[in-house]
């Protein structure tokens, strides 16, 4: 019952005077909170063990050197030491907590890099050049409709007004433009995918 009845200040005082069992009681009393606090920061059991151990080595040294002053409470003081050691750990490793990606869930299934790498960019540039060449092969009226529809994003109504033909004629030119482009692509065995 000693561990329940004796408060931290008394235990610390007893420990300073040489009662080693007091430290055992203090550790038993607070180990879960301190260890969980460390683990919540570093998310690694082995590192948590190391930081927990270093925390108490610091506590022991400070107490035995007689440099501890009972201004604050024991637990907040130990937590502060643990917190500083966690910061030291991250400084030493020059990184912040990282997602270790070890579980079933992969962070990369959610995060993706949509920017093109050098190779993909080159392929895309080549595809664009090929498409331009295919378009240039089209008859002038089809080419005009296709460019207005695809690149200028005009509606067929606007295209018909601009070109002075009916909507059906504009639709027909677009249709033939696509058919002719497909023919050219097949004829030349062009691959226009990235």
């Amino acid at each position: 019952m000693k561990s329940v009845l004796t408060d931290d200040a008394t235990l610390v005082s007893n420990y300073i005077q040489g009662d080693e069992d007091s430290l055992s009681i203090l550790i038993k009393k607070h180990k879960q909170r301190i260890y969980s606090f460390i683990y919540s920061k570093v998310y690694d059991r082995d590192i948590s063990e190391d930081v927990f151990q270093d925390t108490f080595i610091k506590v022991i040294k400070t107490l035995k050197k007689g440099r501890y002053n009972e201004e604050g409470k024991f637990l907040p003081w130990v937590m502060r030491i643990a917190h500083n050691l966690v910061i030291d750990h991250f400084r030493r490793n020059n990184r912040m907590p990282k997602f270790d990606n070890s579980g079933e869930f992969s962070i990369f299934s959610v995060l993706s890099d949509n920017s093109l790498n050098a190779e993909k960019q080159m392929v895309r540039d080549q595809v664009n050049v090929d498409i331009k060449r295919v378009i240039e092969e089209l008859p002038e009226d089809q080419k005009e409709v296709l460019k207005m529809r695809v690149y200028q994003e005009m509606s067929f109504k606007e295209i018909s007004e601009r070109t002075g033909v009916s909507i059906n004629t504009a639709l027909g030119r677009m249709r033939y433009a696509l058919i002719n482009m497909r023919k050219t692509i097949e004829k030349n065995n062009m691959i226009l995918t990235n």
């Binding site: 055992s24 879960q32 260890y35 919540s40 948590s48 151990q53 040294k61």
Partner: peptide, 23 residues
């Protein structure tokens, strides 16, 4: 994260260290 405890060896080491160190 809240119900974790250090290994017995870690606690044992700390207590042994405490007994071994003198100033």
């Amino acid at each position: 994260t809240n119900n974790l405890n250090p290994k017995e060896e870690t606690v044992g080491f700390i207590l042994a260290y405490s007994r071994a160190i003198k100033f």
